[in-house]
């Protein structure tokens, strides 16, 4: 097991190194990055000063080494360059080996730490995706049960039609429609804002306040497709369970229908739905990109789309590395769990 873990770790690190190198080639060898940080009237001296500040005046190989050094959690640095919050072990009079958080550089647009920008945004995305997924489960399960209990009648057909419609609608389109209808046209009835993030500023106190009303529309927009999938899965699963012997026994015992559904059918029908729908979480994260942008929800997707628009290369490459790390971790865990569960693969 330890050998398997070690080889997997080595393999993952080599993939990550490949991604990092590719990011460097794609984004950092981009010429004239300093042009993005100046106004229309900038002169050569100004551009040169910015280049020096960003280290863009150095040869590509040196820049690559600096980039790796910045990303690595362990490195050798000269003592005057070591900030106070890094842990260091002295090697010589001038150098130390340091342990630090990996750094992704600073944004070209606002000069903030890319790690801080991405971490702030990631929290927003996780909350939005989490709430949307829960919402999708509740509505999808409910619709699935109703459709199954009304098998082949009008309600079943209507729910099937709606779920087929919802599954066909891309999330950016459903977002625009939902925002327009509930946040603009019917605003006076819904009171739901067209755009906004999890927190807003209270003008009287100047403090940050939790604004949950901003979460409702983007969560619904993001949940539209999973609702459709879960409805159909649940319907099929409930129908299959309703044919089972134990349900027939429950009916023969004279249990009321609601108890049969809640206590027996639901419990067994949920298992395949949960397994299948878990896979939707990853695709929901992708859908969140557009939803966040349209509802101005501060999340990873919004940050990355805006960074691409503004060619904020450190943020874009940081985002790519973040996503790569998430995929590497998930894939590694899946591979290891397969080996653990399936003796043939050991």
């Amino acid at each position: 097991m330890i050998k398997a873990l070690a080889s997997k770790a080595l393999y993952s690190i080599s993939i990550l190194w490949g991604v990092i190198t590719l990011c460097f080639i794609l984004f950092y060898v981009f010429p004239d990055a300093e042009d993005m940080m100046v106004g229309q009237r900038a002169d050569l001296q100004t551009k040169q000063a910015i280049k020096e500040e960003l280290g863009l005046d150095k040869p590509v190989f040196i820049r690559y080494l600096n980039y790796l050094k910045q990303l690595s959690p362990i490195g050798i640095f000269s003592k005057p360059d070591i900030p106070k919050n890094w842990y260091e072990i002295s090697l010589s009079e001038n150098n130390s080996i340091v342990f630090k958080n990996p750094e992704l550089g600073r944004s070209y647009q606002n000069r903030r730490s890319v790690v801080n920008i991405l971490m702030e945004a990631l929290i927003g995305t996780l909350i939005l995706a989490g709430v949307a997924m829960t919402f999708a489960f509740i509505i999808g399960i409910l619709f699935g049960i109703i459709a199954a209990l009304n098998y082949q009648n009008l309600i079943d057909s209507l729910l099937l039609f709606l779920s087929t419609l919802f599954i066909s609608v891309p999330s950016f389109f459903s977002s625009i429609i939902i925002a327009w209808l509930f946040g603009f046209i019917w605003y006076q009835y819904t009171g739901l804002p067209l755009t906004g993030s999890l927190f807003s500023i209270d003008m009287e106190s100047g403090k940050q306040v939790l604004t949950l009303s901003n979460l409702i529309l983007p969560a619904i927009a993001l949940a539209v497709r999973p609702v459709a999938v879960i409805t159909q899965l649940m319907r099929t699963s409930v129908l299959a369970n309703l044919e089972s012997d134990y349900i027939r026994t429950a009916k023969a015992k004279g249990l009321p229908p609601y108890l049969i559904i809640l206590k027996h059918t639901l419990k067994n029908a949920l298992n395949p739905v949960i397994t299948a729908a878990s896979g939707w979480f990853a695709s929901m994260m992708a859908g969140a990109f557009f939803v966040e942008y349209i509802f101005n929800w501060k999340g990873l997707g919004k940050v990355l789309i805006e960074s691409v628009q503004m060619s904020d290369l450190p943020v874009v490459s940081g985002g790519v590395i973040y996503i790569a790390i998430i995929f590497i971790i998930v894939n590694t865990l899946v591979d290891l769990s397969y080996k653990y569960l399936d003796p043939k693969l050991r």
């Binding site: 509740i138 739901l192 604004t211 949950l212 009303s213 979460l215 409702i216």
Partner: peptide, 19 residues
């Protein structure tokens, strides 16, 4: 999780827009 979400949405609807 279900309970928390229901509460979130319920209180969300009552949020007063002070803008």
């Amino acid at each position: 999780v279900l309970l928390v979400n229901i509460l979130l949405i319920a209180f969300g609807c009552n949020n007063v827009d002070k803008s």
